[in-house]
Nucleic acid binder design. Sequence first.
DNA 1: AAAATCCGCAACCGCGGGAGA
DNA 2: ATCTCCCGCGGTTGCGGATTT
Length: 334
Amino acid sequence: MGHHSCCNQQKVKRGLWSPEEDEKLIRYITTHGYGCWSEVPEKAGLQRCGKSCRLRWINYLRPDIRRGRFTAEEEKLIISLHAIVGNRWAHIASHLPGRTDNEIKNYWNSWIKKKIRKPAVSTTTTSSSVTAATSPPCSTAASDAAAALGHHLQTPFSAAEHQLDALISQSCLALPSKLSGGGQNSPPAPPLPPHCPFFMFDTSSVSPPSSLTSPVAQLAQHPFLTFAAASMDAPGYQLPPLVDGMGMGMAAMDCGLGEESRGNNSQAAAAMANGGGWQQQKQEEQQLGQDQWDEESAQHLLMWDDDQELTPSNLEAMESGAHSLLFMGPNDHE
DNA sequence: AAAATCCGCAACCGCGGGAGA
DNA sequence: ATCTCCCGCGGTTGCGGATTT
């Protein structure tokens, strides 16, 4: 197809940038700034179009670019934000200093690809011997689910989204250290099972901090926002109790909110039992003395499995009943 | 060791929106 | 009000290194 409109007249180079070109661009921008991108290539002595220069600068040459693998905390943040705003990569990137929209988009896409290729069983089986016999991949997994959730939320909650932005920018930037429990005085964060495929938090026991009065409290009526607001805005930020030890059991289960169980979280619990992991999980809970996994408390959970099909109906159930959101995410942290 | 396949990521493409003429 | 230019964004492509067969 055609080139950028701005490069129609001139013959421009395409493809990978050479180190010499990079140097020219860096030298020009650091001394002159970019101003009008369409003028940059000519003034910098580059046979590129302005758009290409802009892209190269923004995605690669900018001095504040942070490269390297995404941390587990960044992953969680991306996943959470994606659930809210969908594929608005620039928006997501604005909450991750030093990361570009392109990088996040690439990361997300490759992660999704990995998830699609990998069967549902992917769940790094840990100590649990639960088998994944009955879990076929449900549709396109996380991408659909998250996108559906994001798009679903986008329309009715666009205002809330902006306010959530404010919350996130206030508190999420500090997320990594807090999440990892690294701060000296910060309360210890719940441990993250190294191979847990989900990020699961039980917010049923979390009461929003007093600072969460209007208007945030109002927008936070939505279950997801309830979680986001309650967990992120609290002074001395602490996540809701992590649903620990569930990873292995749940990982092997069918979609928690399957066709037969949508709209009813108690039934969802039953569906979990059908998946085969429930009994196993019960045993584990008893061992741990954490008897919170009865059907009643299941009503306070929203299962978001990376193999779960998230339909508008499921989302309705989410909005009406659930108080918590299970964050799913890459399970191959290192 | 060679070929095939996978995968990450840089770069391209087209579109929409905003600003200014 | 309309047109043009430019920027920014999301989707997609394709290169090249890594891994597998």
